[in-house]
Design a protein around this nucleic acid. Structure first.
Lengths: 148, 148
DNA sequence: GTAAATGCAAAGGTTTTGCACGTTA
DNA sequence: TAACGTGCAAAACCTTTGCATTTAC
């Protein structure tokens, strides 16, 4: 018996309007574990809400990225990909990217060891460069099983 | 008294022709510590070799990336950036990216600690996912001194 | 001499912008 | 109802492709 989605309150506090396209995009992102591009999202939402425009997808994603609800990735194939990074069931992870076929695999096993290392690194980098570091991304590049 | 550039031999062994545009691009990349886009490279080479075309820049960069002489980065501003990663004076490093103004800072201090961590991680990831991992990138995102 | 490399122009694909119309709070 | 959000069309970019010409070996 799910209550209202957790992002409802967030939008209200935040002062932005929770419109149908925004709900549809958030709902989609919260149900997938894929690495969707703007077009992917447009096409998927279009099936359930045919009125949506690609422009709105881009603008909503920008908003969600700025608000820290979504992460934007560039894996080198010319289009950005988006992932929800807040909410229940969300675990931080990194990516293995096949440089041949573009396949992307999530990997989580490194996260524990990473934490202890990166907390120190980030705070010392912040001090040294006067940089307010918000986060980091780690991408592993190589050849996947099929392409190897 | 510099001898012939180190990449001369490399190209010959490799079976590719060492043309004027290729030399000009490699020469530029070996002298800069900036994070140049294709257009940046085109404009800089154009000053010394006006005959060059943007297409050749892209094709040469692809070649150098495939050959492992150059790394290609995407920092989220819609254009790829290129860095020489072979040759004398080249030290591996990672990047701090300002999400407001796009400024990019190289950081090297993490490299030592990183090595011991990542050698293990990469080999265990390789085994687990049957992925032949060639390398990784770490990007730190935040606000630089001016934008903070 | 011959295959490889180049430059131009055009095409392709992704993302952004301007503006009139709808919608949310 | 007033400000915010949307959709469409067009524009702006970055990158790739086709093809005739030039160049390196």
């Amino acid at each position: 018996m799910p209550g209202p989605p957790w992002w409802q309150e967030r939008f209200r506090d935040w002062g932005y309007r929770l419109t149908i396209p925004r709900q549809a995009i958030l709902s989609l992102l919260s149900k997938t574990n894929k690495h969707l591009s703007a077009i992917d999202i447009y096409l998927a939402v279009h099936r359930v809400y045919p009125g949506i425009g690609l422009t709105t997808v881009y603008r909503t994603l920008d908003l969600l990225v700025k608000g820290g609800l979504v992460l934007k990735f560039d894996f080198g194939d010319g289009k950005s990909r988006y992932e929800l990074c807040k909410g229940p069931d969300i675990k931080p992870h990194h990516h293995l990217v096949c440089t041949n076929c573009g396949r992307i695999i999530d990997c989580r096993e490194f996260i524990d060891k990473e934490k202890e290392v990166f907390e120190n690194v980030q705070s010392s980098l912040s001090t040294k460069y006067n940089f307010d570091i918000k986060g980091h991304q780690i991408h592993f590049y190589g050849l996947c099983e099929k392409c190897n």
